[in-house]
C-alpha cells in the first residue's frame, strides 16, 4: 500500500533542546500507527510538525502527498487532529463549537452530524453548556468529535483516551478499529502501551527525540514479545 505519511530525516530544535532528532518513518494507508514514547520524547512535536502547526528545523515530511512545511494549511484541511491539550474556545457551547468547526471546514449538515457524535460519545445533555464549564472528559469528547466530524482519510490524534473513563475508552477503541477497517488511517501518539498493543497495526518508539524502533506489531508477537516489555527494554537502554 502507498504511504499516506512519510518522514525523512526530520529534526526540530528549540534553542539548545533537540525535540526531534533526524527521524525517518512512513505510515501506510489503512494502518493504525502508534507513535510511542515516554513523556518529553518528542511525540507531540512530531504531530505539530506533521500538521503544519510548527516548522521543522531540518528534513522533510509529506502527509497525503502534501509537503507539511509549504502546504500545512491544506494538510489541516484534509486531516482530523486532536491536539495534546483539549482547548475548545471557552465561551462557545459544545454545539456551537461543532458548528464553528463545520463553518470553518465548510461541512454541510453539521447539526445532524453533531447529533450523531453527541449520541455516540453520550454527551448530548452538555451540548448547550459552555466549553469552559465542561469537565476534562467532556472536553476530550468534544475534541474527538471535531477531529472526525468531517470524516477525514487520516487522523492524527495525541493521547485521545487519556481523560476517558473505561466505558468511554471502549467506545472510542471500537470506533477507531472500525475506522481503519474502512480503509482510513490513524496516526496515534500515546504513552499508554496496553492501548497501543491492543489497537495498533504498526508502531514506532521515540526517546529523547530519536527513533529507537519502527515496525509492525505482529513482528513482536512472532518473537514472543509484548509491547510493554519491549518498549521498556529499549528505552532503558537509551
Amino acid at each position: 500500500m502507498a504511504p499516506v505519511l512519510e518522514v525523512t530525516d526530520l529534526s526540530k530544535v528549540y534553542g539548545d533542546v533537540t525535540a526531534v532528532d533526524h527521524v525517518s518513518l512512513s505510515v501506510e494507508e489503512g494502518a493504525l500507527f502508534g507513535l510511542l514514547g515516554p513523556n518529553g520524547s518528542g511525540k507531540t512535536t512530531m504531530i505539530k510538525i506533521l500538521t503544519g502547526q510548527i516548522r521543522p528545523t531540518g528534513g522533510s515530511a509529506t502527509v497525503l502527498g502534501l509537503n507539511v512545511e509549504r502546504e500545512g494549511l491544506r494538510v489541516r484541511e484534509r486531516v482530523g487532529i486532536i491536539p495534546e491539550q483539549e482547548s475548545p474556545p471557552s465561551f462557545l457551547s459544545a454545539m456551537e463549537y461543532l458548528e464553528f468547526v463545520g463553518a470553518v471546514r465548510k461541512i454541510p449538515d453539521i447539526p445532524e452530524r453533531a447529533e450523531r457524535w453527541f449520541d455516540l460519545l453520550e454527551f448530548g445533555d452538555k451540548k448547550h453548556v459552555l466549553c469552559k464549564d465542561l469537565s476534562r472528559g467532556t472536553r476530550q469528547k468534544l475534541m474527538f468529535a471535531q477531529a472526525f466530524i468531517h470524516e477525514p482519510v487520516l487522523a492524527l490524534i495525541d493521547e485521545p483516551l487519556i481523560n476517558f473513563d473505561p466505558i468511554m475508552q471502549d467506545v472510542v477503541k471500537d470506533y477507531l478499529a472500525d475506522y481503519v477497517r474502512s480503509g482510513r488511517t490513524i496516526f496515534l501518539s500515546t504513552h499508554i502501551l496496553e492501548v497501543a498493543e491492543e489497537l495498533c497495526s504498526s508502531f514506532a518508539i521515540l526517546h529523547r527525540g530519536r527513533l529507537l524502533h519502527s515496525g509492525p506489531i505482529a513482528d513482536l508477537a512472532e518473537k514472543g514479545l509484548h509491547l510493554p516489555e519491549f518498549f521498556l527494554s529499549l528505552v532503558r537502554k537509551g
Binding site: 457551547s93 454545539m95 456551537e96 458548528e99 464553528f100 448547550h128 453548556v129 469552559k132 465542561l134
Partner: peptide
C-alpha cells in the same frame, strides 16, 4: 466553579 447553565445557539445566526 463551572456551572451547567445552558446557552441558546447564537453562533449560526450571528455568522
Amino acid at each position: 466553579a463551572g456551572t451547567t447553565k445552558h446557552y441558546p445557539n447564537t453562533l449560526a445566526p450571528l455568522i
